[in-house]
Design a protein around this nucleic acid. Structure first.
Length: 231
DNA sequence: CTTTCGATATTCT
DNA sequence: GAATATCGAAAGC
């Protein structure tokens, strides 16, 4: 693994998550470029699986940075998080959408022949299926050292920035480019930030605007408020 | 277009 | 028993 990635993953999920946009996760015959993420920070976040402490399901969310945390959603779907921050705290970035950049035939075989390319890994359950994630085998494996089925690689250009400056400052710059748009470079992907999908009550809405995505990217999932969301 | 509902593991009330 | 970091099909407008 690289020092830049190590420095980024030392940060809690709300800092780390936006910098995972453009990173790739590769393994089981496919490579995905991440286009949408949500941060979950247990110590202050009622929406986090880890907010009330470790359980058999969520224990790897407390693991060392670079751990993969997989969980069963609604009893059916397998969703994938990148664990970051200090070991012993629950901090994860949920991978919500991605572009399939390699192994598109493999992804389509898993998702079905009628699914369009941009929808192959759109939504966290679909992303997990396109990856071929297996809950029992993959939960708790490393995304960094090659000992697990998947490997995480930073977006091009971020490695140098993350080793030259404080990662929190680099992420703040990335988000500033969100508001101002491309500064001088030929073409910079803009990042949008908003409330998390499917999270109800105070944990949703404006309290924790911890969903981030590539503005206008066709692989990003549609926002849906939770059924029982409160004002 | 929007809303409803079934599938169902894990956790909390 | 109810809610949940979801998805897709079916039904209603």
């Amino acid at each position: 693994m690289t020092d830049g990635l190590r420095a980024l993953l030392a940060e809690p999920a709300p800092v780390c998550a936006p910098a995972l946009l453009g990173a790739t996760i590769a393994g089981r015959g496919v490579t995905l470029r991440i286009t949408e993420v949500e941060a979950y920070w247990g110590p202050t976040d009622p929406g986090s699986h880890g907010h009330r402490g470790p359980t058999p399901r969520n224990r790897h969310l407390f693991g060392p940075p670079g751990t993969l945390y997989a969980y069963r959603s609604y009893g059916i779907h397998t969703c994938v998080n990148v664990v970051s921050g200090p070991e012993g705290t629950s901090s994860g970035s949920l991978l919500r959408a991605a572009e399939v950049v390699d192994g598109i035939e493999v992804a389509r075989a898993r998702r079905g022949p009628s699914v369009t390319d941009v929808a192959l890994a759109r939504g966290p359950g679909n992303l997990g299926q396109a990856l071929g994630a297996v809950l029992g085998e993959d939960d708790g494996t490393s995304l960094l050292d090659g000992s697990g089925p998947f490997r995480l690689t930073l977006a091009p250009g971020l490695e140098a920035r993350l080793t030259a400056a404080d990662p929190a400052d680099v992420v703040a710059e990335l988000l500033r480019e969100t508001v101002a748009g491309p500064v001088g470079a030929a073409r910079v992907r803009r990042i949008s930030v908003g409330p998390r999908t499917g999270v109800a009550g105070v944990a949703g809405g404006a309290t924790f605007p911890w969903r981030s995505w590539w503005t206008g990217d066709p692989t990003v999932s549609a926002y849906r408020r939770h059924q029982r969301a409160v004002d």
